[in-house]
């Protein structure tokens, strides 16, 4: 396992996580509330892609636009059902209403698709590529490309369109946005649409390699939550950085004994570098970050919201 190959995997996993975390942080900024169904939207995107692939028989890349559109609609539905009626209530109310949305999505998926894992189609195809001596799967490289493209598109949306500027204004200060005549409710619905589309894209990208089941959402939810916390609450760049960091930890920690062979002969190295220990170490590390640096790892820029 060459380092370069590992890094490709880190980037691929991190890029997909970043899409989930971006959706999470966009909703957080626009509404001040945690969308606990963000992971289940990833799951919904995975199953949505399976459904589309079954009907259309095309590669993942081709059905991506249709998936994004469908997920955006789902996002608006979630906003209407679980956020809009709770606008004037404390953020916990949305936390709980989105937990309910998650339960509904999981059980609808279970009803429609069954509990067995299924795979989404690959973006281009299977197989592996070699460049500059690095051997990587086509899918991993494609994930990096597509995620980068989506993030760039998001950036353009935010900086170069009227819609994006209004979204940002809404996220920055809702009351002020309302005062200067921005249709805040529509902007928030738009944010849910964008967030759900990003989650859906992540579902398509991740579920080819890792499959999707009705219960696979919760894991992504926790990853996104953690990414946003270590990246700095409300920071968009921080969310991407946090997602990459988590992916790096997830891939590299269990591989440490391979990268540093001396560790392999350490007593009970199997247990210390097992996947389960890796989860415990990550959780404890995040707890420490929360306690020591509640503003996140990346500087002061992040706004801290209660």
């Amino acid at each position: 396992m060459a380092i370069a190959q590992l890094l490709v995997e880190v980037l691929a996993l991190g890029a997909a996580y970043a899409l989930v975390a971006l959706g999470f942080v966009l909703i957080l900024n626009a509404t001040g509330a945690v969308n606990f169904a963000q992971g289940d939207l990833v799951m919904a995107g995975g199953f949505g892609a399976v459904l589309l692939a079954d009907r259309l028989h095309v590669s993942g890349l081709v059905l991506l636009p249709a998936l994004l559109a469908g997920m955006a609609v789902l996002g608006v539905v979630v906003a209407l059902a679980a956020y809009m009626p709770l606008r004037r209530r404390p953020p916990e109310a949305v936390f709980i209403s989105t937990i309910a949305v998650g339960i509904i999505l999981q059980n609808v998926a279970n009803r429609l698709f069954g509990a067995e894992p299924v795979a989404t189609p690959p973006l281009f195809g299977a197989g592996r590529v070699r460049f500059a001596g690095v051997d990587a799967s086509v899918q991993s490289v494609a994930i990096i490309g597509v995620a980068a493209l989506l993030i760039a598109a998001l950036y353009t949306l935010f900086t170069h369109t009227q819609f994006g500027r209004r979204l940002r204004a809404t996220a920055y200060d809702r009351d002020m946005a309302m005062a200067i005549g921005i249709p805040v409710d529509r902007m928030i619905a738009g944010t849910f649409a964008v967030a759900a589309a990003l989650a859906g894209a992540a579902g398509l990208l991740l579920s080819n390699t890792f499959f999707v089941t009705p219960s696979s959402g919760s894991d992504y939810m926790i990853k996104a939550y953690i990414a946003v916390v270590i990246g700095g609450w409300g920071s968009i760049r921080g969310a991407v950085a946090g997602a990459l960091l988590i992916a790096a930890f997830e891939v590299l920690y269990p591989s440490l004994p391979l990268l540093v062979p001396a560790l392999l002969w350490m007593p009970s190295s199997d247990a210390v570098f097992s996947q389960t220990t890796s989860t415990i170490v990550l959780d404890v590390a995040v707890l420490l970050i929360l306690v020591v640096r509640p503003q996140g790892l990346f500087g002061e820029a992040a706004r801290q919201r209660p």
Partner: peptide, 23 residues
Amino acid sequence: VYEDALDVGVKDMRPVIAKAVAS
């Protein structure tokens, strides 16, 4: 020579396989 317990949520199996081989 090698044992590992995996959570059902574990995605990346390569480290486990590589460690098993290395053992």
